[in-house]
Structures are given as structure tokens and as C-alpha cells.
Design a binder for these strands. Sequence first.
DNA 1: CAGGCTGGCTTTTTT
DNA 2: AGCCAGCCTG
Length: 764
Amino acid sequence: MPYLDDLNPAQRAAVLALDGPVLMLAGAGTGKTKALTSRIVHLLATGKARPNEILAVTFTNKAAREMKERVARMLGQSVEGMPWMGTFHSISVKILRRHAELAGLKSNFTILDTDDQLRLLKQLIVAAGIDEKRWPARMLAGVIDSWKNRAWTPAKVPSSEASAYNNRGTELYEQYQERLRTLNACDFGDLLLHVVTLFQAHPDILAQYQRWLRYILVDEYQDTNVAQYLWLRLLAQGHRNICCVGDDDQSIYGWRGAEVGNILRFEKDFPGAEVVRLEQNYRSTEHILAAASGVIAANAGRLGKTLWTEAQGGEKVRLIGHWDGEEEARWIGDEIEALQRGTRGGQPVGLNDQAILVRASHQMRAFEDRFLTIGLPYRVIGGPRFYERLEIRDAMAYFRLAVSPDDDLAFERVVNTPKRGLGDKAQQDIQRTARVSGMSLLEGARELLAAGGIGGKGAGQLRAFVAGVDRWHAKTLQQGHSHIELAEQILEESGYTAMWQADKTPEAPGRLENLKELVKALEQFENLQGFLEHVALIMENETEDAVEKVSIMTLHAAKGLEFPAVFLPGWEDGLFPSQRSMDESGLKGLEEERRLAYVGITRAEHLCTISFAANRRVYGQWQSQLPSRFIDELPVAHVDVLTPPGLYGGAYGAAAPGGFGGGSRIEDRATKADVYNSPGWRRLQERSSQRPVSQPRESRSPVIDLAAVSSFTEGDRVFHQKFGYGSVAAIEGDKLDIAFDKAGVKKIVARFVVAAHEADDVPF
DNA sequence: CAGGCTGGCTTTTTT
DNA sequence: AGCCAGCCTG
């Protein structure tokens, strides 16, 4: 078994314990995925299970894909034969399609995304005569989601929740479920919920799956919610061969229903469970690990793990304070360039190997602005995703309508997009006609037209729209017709493409580009149906870039990733830990924030730089900030303080041995006199005075595109990917001051913009 | 029906 | 400060 030789003792123990319940506590960077995949390979190699008898569950498609690839690589063959490897949701859909009728659905039910869900709820809210302003649909969606996360059907919502959504929550939840059933649709929460209720109501079906799925593996167990927990427990009750992998210290999704409790009480749920701890870290230096451990140690109720590494030395975690957020961004930009060139000492660090991890996405802006100015390539991870974009959702609605003409939500979305002269009045008439006759909106429209119930110009256009849907639908039923051509035809004939071609806003060219990409994505599918099914569950858009870029993302988005150099800006109380988190969830919230800090630090392999600013604009108001309480928890021995003494912040650095602060209570930091007289603070001062704050660097930008510099003159019209159209107001070397039509004046490096006329003819 | 104005909100996000 | 939704006006 060559794959076993590759493992350390703990990993091997986790792989060899095939039977019975196993909890694999895998710290950051301890080779968790390796152990997990080896375990699957071992199950197959020992003949304990056949490929279709292993249930391997992850949260994200990305994790599922990664697992598939790694197992395939280790086996030297594809994993086509492992149908039960996927996300909770994709596996649930598979189960639910088979038994849809038992959940009151047809097996071709559609899966609604958040947007559809919200529009539906809005309708119910209006119908119930509730002021949507005071009681927003988002709130109701949140309430219903949290109930579904707890596996509560409308009947099971406890009376203690009766006050939810102005006392109308339960009632609306019931109506919503009713509506979904009529539409033959599910939201994401339903996928899990229906499977759980199905298993509970039909022991025979459950037993069948229990018999089938002899071995169960679960990744990121600390992120499971109650519904997922029940889902797993029901399935695992058969053979009790369940292996859950997770790290309680990395549980950061409590706010969306994840229960750390699930992992904490695993041993109670599964008596006799074997617990294996993976603690040898292969990712980070000892200083980085020590810093992370120092912070997380402040959390109570941990299962407890101590990461260690054989790696010696390395750089300490760096800590620096700045005057404000802009200076912080400037300094980090300089540091990144210095690392890239290798002028900071040590090997050059490529931009792909550097990341900035922020608490909240609005923090990204300062960095984007700065990087645009200095021409530092960056990529933002986790922005709006491809399939969530307006134009993609519109196009998808057209496709849905072609496939199922009775899809009312799709009908509503596009009946007047592009504008067909069908305003509120016309649409309400259609709705009413449909409701009265108990038909779909499309049929309602048809009937209304026949009855002459639609006025003047709208009538002709609606007739054309209905005829279009009929035509497209007929084509989806024909064999041998190219679905790609059909898609193009739909976008063309509906006037949707033309709508964007006529649009002169800066986003229009990009949207046309996206539509082209959408059509291209169809190539990988047999037909439109297959494509729609895929998109409902797999909302992702991973683009591999040829150009090296720094990554900017939230701490949440960074989980599971690693980078040689990591910057953690904005470590200020209120921002990180987030005030809102503490207000809403108290100590629990604070502890989750602390785990977020732990996740952040442990992303770093070699260099981790934490920073904070003394002043920051919050909602447009300048505020003076205190350094994060987490900074007090960093062990002094593993941190280099780069901040000039007495300058900014200044509140960190009390005398307690081993840490910067004596505690995390605000009162502690208020006694500044003590702090400044303390040995700890003097030590900090001595250390930081030995080094310049940041070495002066020769001025920046390795690559200057001379062609770009010379090709603009003042007054030129230009186009920028993010800011749209504008005119050149001033030129300074390779930098342009551009007055954007929408975004105001910005300083931008010339190679980031194109002449406006070039942007105009993006072909479609 | 467009376009402009005002008022309210503002953490994290996968499926 | 900036974004969005809803409202009013032309």
C-alpha cells in the first residue's frame, strides 16, 4: 500500500480505522485532504467497500471536485463509479429526484436561487398586506432559512418562534412552502429538509440507503447545521461507519446556521468513537503557528489541539500600525512590490503567492484604489459570481421558459425585458387571468390576448413574445437540434442581445461578453435541460489567470487556502472583531471572530503581516480606532513590531508575560501610564527603534508600457473595466488623471484603460 | 416609462 | 461615503 507510507502516524491511524465512528480533528495545514482521500482509496483497496458504497460529503463544489481529482489521481483512474461523492445539496437532489412524489413534488422540480426566493416572498408579503418596508422580504427569507437549517417544517416550528417576522413568520412560511409546491420548486434549504423529512417518514427508504451507503465520510464537519447533522445521523445509523473530519477552531459559519456543537458532541453521538488528532503542520513556520495558537487559546470549550512543525526559524509575524486606512493600503502595496522584486531580503515572492485577507468586503476598496494607482495587478476573490449577474439570470430565465413554458418566475422576470410596453398594469392583468383560470402566466397571457384584454402597443409585443416561447419550446422537444444554436436564437429573437447592444452604459460591453461566455458554457452539455440543472447547484466561476496577481478576499473566502505571504489589515476593535458580531452574539460572536483570526493567520506559510490603523472612515465618518483585542493575544516572542513607538494606536503592549496585553478587557488598555512604563512596552520600543519603519525603495513599477503612455493625450475619451467611460484630465508619466463620467476623478495607470472607441466595438 | 431624487442601510456567503 | 429601492415627476 504505497499510499500508506506517505502518511505520518496520525494520518495513518485515521486512514486505517475504517470501521466504526471516527472523528478526525485536523488542524490547519495538517494534511487533512490527504488523509481523507487516502482513506477512500484504502476502503477501495481493501475491498471493504465498492465505489458506489461510499458516501463522501463536502460543502462546496470546489472541495468535492478536489476530492474527486485526488482520489482519481491516487487510483490512477477516474471516479465515475463514485456516485455518492459530492455536496450535501447535490446528493440531496439526487435522492429527492428519485422520491419526489413523496415530498409532494414532481421529479423534474426546479431549484430556486436566492433571487427567485426573494421575489416569491415579496409577493406573499404584499398579498398578506404587510408593509414590506418595515418587514423586508430579506428578513423573512432569513427567518425561514434558519428554520430550514434546523430542519423545522412549518408544522414543527416551535411556539417560541411565534414572534418571528412580526408574528406572521410561521403563517408565511406555510404559505411559502405551499407556493413552492404549486410551482414544483425547491429552494436550497428544502433540498436538505425534504430529504430529512422523507427519511423520517419512510423508514423503508431510509433503510435502503443505509444498506447501500456502507461508509460515510464528511468534510468540514464543524460547518454542519442541524439539518445536515440529522441527514448524516439518519444515514449513519445503519453501519455506523462514519468518519467526520473537521476543526472546531475553524468554525466560522455560525451566523448561517453551522453548529460547532455538532463536532463538540461527536463522541456522545457516536459512543466508542475513535478520535484522531492531526497536529503536525506542514504549512507554516513555527512563529506563525505560535501566533495563531496564542490567539485561539483564548477561546473556551475547544476540543483542543496543539499544532507543531518540524520547520525551524523563519520570520516572526509582523505587526504594524498606520495613521489611517489609506496609509495602510499604501504600505502594503509597497511591501507586496518589494516582496515581488525580492528587495526585502530573501527570495522574490510572486504576486500569486501573496494575499490580503480582510474581515469585510468594503475594506477591499482601499486596496483596489491604491493598486490601480500604482498598477499592481490584483484579483478579488468571491465577488459577484458569474451566474448571479443580471444578464446571465435574464438569459437563464429565457432558457427556463423555453424548456418549461409554465415557469412563472422566469416568465415574470423576462416578459418585459427588454421593454415590451408591458408595465405593472398589463402584468397584473396577466396574473389575474392566470389565477382565475388556474393556468400558468404564459397561458394566462395567451387567454388575455385572445380576449382582447391587452391594450394597443403592448398587445402586439406580448403576442410576439408568446409566439417566441412556443417556437423555442417546440425546438427543445425536437431531436437533433443544436441547443447552442437555439440559445443564440432565443437571445437574438427576444431582442435581449439587441437591448444590451443599444445600451451605452459602461457595463454593457462586459455584459455582452458574459452572454457570449454563457453560450460557450453550453457546449459542455447535451441540452438546455442538463445545463439548467447544472447551474442551479453549481454557481461558480473560476477563472485561471495567466498574469500573476495579488489576491484580495475576505477571511471567510480564504478558508482552505494558503499563501507564502499573507497580509491581515484592519485589526481594529469594532472592525475585527466586528462590533456587530459581538452585539448580536456576545461571547459566542467574539469567539467566532477569534476563530476567524486563527484562520487568517494560519493561511500564511512564511510571512504573516498584521496591521491596524489609528483612524478609519466608517460609513463616511472619520473614527479613531483602537487596535484589535486579538493583537493583545499575540505572543510577544513570535512577533516583530514595526510600528514606531508612541505613534499610533499605542494601546497594545501591556506587561503580561507572553502576550501584548494583560487581558482583553477594555479597562486594561485604558491604563496607559502602566502600559507605557511596563517592561513589555519598553521591550517593544527597543525592538522597533532598531529598524526603519519601512525601507525606502526605489520608485515603483517594473513594467511601464511605453506604448500606453504615449497613446493618450489630455481630453481623450477612455474606458476602464471598473469605472467606465471618462476623459483624460492630466498625464503624469504612465499615470493618468481621469475624470470618469460616473465614478469621479481617479489616478490610473495608463495600461489599465483603453481608448473609448476601442471599447465600443466589443463584438457579439 | 425614464430619470432623478430621497431615505435608509451598511459582515461574513454556499448551495 | 456610496448603494439601492421606492417614489415622484415630466
